[in-house]
Design a protein around this nucleic acid. Sequence first.
DNA 1: CCTTGACTTCGAGTGCGCTCGAAGTTTTAG
DNA 2: CTAAAACTTCGAGCGCACTCGAAGTCAAGG
Lengths: 127, 127
Amino acid sequence: MKIGELAKRCDLSVHTIRYYERIGLLPFVDRDRSSHRDYDATILPWIAFLGRLKTTGMPVRDMLRYARLRQRGRETEAERRHLLEQHRQCVSEHVARLQECLLVLDGKIAGYADSERKDQDHAPQAQ
Amino acid sequence: MKIGELAKRCDLSVHTIRYYERIGLLPFVDRDRSSHRDYDATILPWIAFLGRLKTTGMPVRDMLRYARLRQRGRETEAERRHLLEQHRQCVSEHVARLQECLLVLDGKIAGYADSERKDQDHAPQAQ
DNA sequence: CCTTGACTTCGAGTGCGCTCGAAGTTTTAG
DNA sequence: CTAAAACTTCGAGCGCACTCGAAGTCAAGG
């Protein structure tokens, strides 16, 4: 699979894929005879997982730590697990904060709704 | 209350407070005779609410829209409500995505845990 | 044959949200 | 009275994560 095809499949731009390779998030991949990148489908789940890390707010530098451990093979599994456990904790704390904020937003919205209802009560002349 | 005191109370830096004023998130506040900003405690809940918007990922430009509506007074309440309702929707979608990601993370972590257990089963010689 | 378009490298540019430093004035504690 | 701390304005700088454009190579379709 060439880079354009991969870009479509994983919903990143070609520029971004090359950028990820440059910084080390994606491995240096084999090239065909015209030095075009030729990807194997096994890259897809890895990119999808990077997407999850990104969605959950992991900074690129931490993804990079994880990616480098992964490339060193099975001996780094314990460390990778630890990293993910810590990140899991951060994410779940963040979710909790967001849920608090949702309550505040709901309160605010309800306040505006009340206010609107009162307007109608106090000025019913324009029926 | 002077800016340094306010900074402590709302956990922003003095620089950030002035920046927020500059861009319009905070109102231009009255100065004392030596042109130092002199804040009223009523600014605190507003800053706290801005913090909620920020926590939930609202871009500054949208906070600005809200702030400007607020300054125009009660006539803009319907529009503000609409804005918050839309934002509420975005946030709750984001929470849903995060919760999906948490499941993926849990799966990954469980995988590492399994792998660790298998290591012990297959190489129990070092008891 | 030749155009089209996908690929290559490289370095520069962008947008966001601060963050900082310089240079100067004012306030406050000892 | 003095020294340190807190305030002022202004514009520049930073870290992040891309994003883009220039200039060139290569391969396939008409």
